[in-house]
Amino acid sequence: MAILVNSDSRVICQGITGRNGTFHSLACRDYGTKMVGGVTPGKKGASVDGIPVFNTVKEAVKETGANVSLIFIPAAHAKDPILEAVDAGIQVIVCITEGIPPIDTASALFTVKAEGRHLIGPNTPGIISPTDACKVGIMPGYIHKPGRVGVISRSGTLTYEVVDQLTKAGVGQSSCMGLGGDPVVGLSFVDVLKMFNDDPETDAVVLIGEIGGTAEEQAADYIKSDFKKPVVAYVAGRLAPPGKRMGHAGAIISGGAGTAQGKIKALSDAGVTVVENLTMVGVAMSKLLEVK
């Protein structure tokens, strides 16, 4: 089954006729994703290597039965396409765009949540479910291997690094996703952990955190109280310079959290295997699964 996207996902791309939209729509299709359409206002009737283009998301959904959207729209204009996807009934929205003004994301996210949909990102590599051959994002498909470990991360290339290690250690993945690197993003660690908890095809999870905000601390609380599967974690940014107040705002409110040390401690206290050396994540997970 995997989580969020699977072999039943019918995917459209908003911004399909742009350079990145075209490249990645075709790369997703090559991987096995059902890319059923694209949207660029004014380009109805065009075709991107056989993928039909529509003027509006509503029209695309009506004609193709799409339920997932992949967004490649420049940051200054990215709020409206998210709202358009919600309006058209899209269930899972994956927003790749980086650098959307956080206040725009925050107001779009309010509507996404009110309508009970899922937003992945912005500034995410997307999501991939290797067992279902479904990739909705920009990650290199070939490093993944079908299997039973879930991967959640706040980063892009750091996720690739960890997935590559897992695959090389013989550990396949059920679903891998990046939550997004922007200050305000849709799904959180806790949201996704809940999905993995309920997914019969996921046996264990790798969680990759980084400094700033309190998402890792909240994940630790949830893992401690309700999560039933083993977790391996890595937290980036121990050496982040103080004074560069990266993502500091969220940390202030919750009482000075946000440092790598604080996050590592919270996760360790919740029973998570926290790996200090990034290059040991794959090995740690493989050992954990052997013991089980």
């Binding site: 991360s153 706040r154 980063s155 892009g156 750091l158 980084e210 980036a236 982040a240 990034l278």
Partner: peptide, 17 residues
């Protein structure tokens, strides 16, 4: 020189480790 903020932070951590 690294690509991606997360991997860049992790690379600094690894060097310091």
């Amino acid at each position: 020189i690294v690509n991606g903020a997360g991997l860049a932070m992790a690379t600094l951590d690894l060097i310091s480790l």
